[in-house]
Amino acid sequence: MAQLSYRDAVARGIAQEMRRDERVVVVGEDIAGAGGVFKTTVGLLDEFGPKRVIDTPISEQAILGAATGAAMTGLRPVAEIMFSDFFAVCWDIVVNQIAKTRYMTAGQVTMPLVIKTGNGGGLRFGAQHSQSIENWAMAIPGLKVVTPSTAEDVIGLMAAAIRDDDPVIFCEHKGLYAAKGEVPDGEIVDTLGTARIRRPGHDATILALGMMVPRALAAAEDLATRGIDAEVIDVRSLVPLDTRTILDSVARTGRLFTVEENPQLLGWGAEIASLVADEAFWDLDGPVQRITTPHIPLPSADSLEDLVMPSAESVARTVEKALQS
């Protein structure tokens, strides 16, 4: 057991799998010599050499084109899109090739590809470098979408993603890179499509993802001082989704809140609200409430970015108000 930062956990998870399987390679901008612009691939070049840890030109299409070909021909690449906002420039290959190849070849060609990416806001990077794009990806059949919130989960879910034969969009929250957590020694392998109850509670279920998890936990602690016992679930994996854990929790608490960093329209919480309306309507003791950013681009100004993103305070305030109305 050791303290490890979220960013170091990314490198440890990839290294764990590279030692285990020589087909695993890493490609991306500045990921080799520089160790990644967010320092999430430090040490990989030294350990595994330039044939397996490959710097690319500044072209997202080239990164994913190369990774797609590699995955189709027997390697298990981990490609980095530095900022998740840049998926927008390589969407064609993601949506029309990566997501559909296994389907269109009737399973003859698998796509064991992980696209890791720095995702999310809160770091004053402005509207074009701060977006949370999970909901873009989860709209495409054929893609799996994962967002860990702890160092241990980064390793375990990265390992699971690399071992999976389908393409996985692996969203690393930029705001969590510096966060440290206890990580067990030895190999860690997790399971895609599993959520974690971070804090059990009876009065309300709060679902959160990525950097919203620590905020939801802080909100729950705050609510506890006022007699509200909230359960916090770290969704971790949007596709596949751990519907059992979510529905069981709603059956216990009767109230559901989602804490989403994305803008309100078509956020992942809307999909879960729809699921709960279908499957758990008679368990609901009040309307599902979503706590999201407004439907606006994220501002650059510190004060404005803080204002629009869900905070522990806004989560606690929303939950308390809902339970008292």
């Binding site: 009767g254 309507f281 008679w282 368990d283 609901l284 003791d285 009040g286």
Partner: peptide
Amino acid sequence: GHRPRQVHSPRVRH
């Protein structure tokens, strides 16, 4: 100012 009727949640009704 006031609710026209008492509203029961699905959970309570069930």
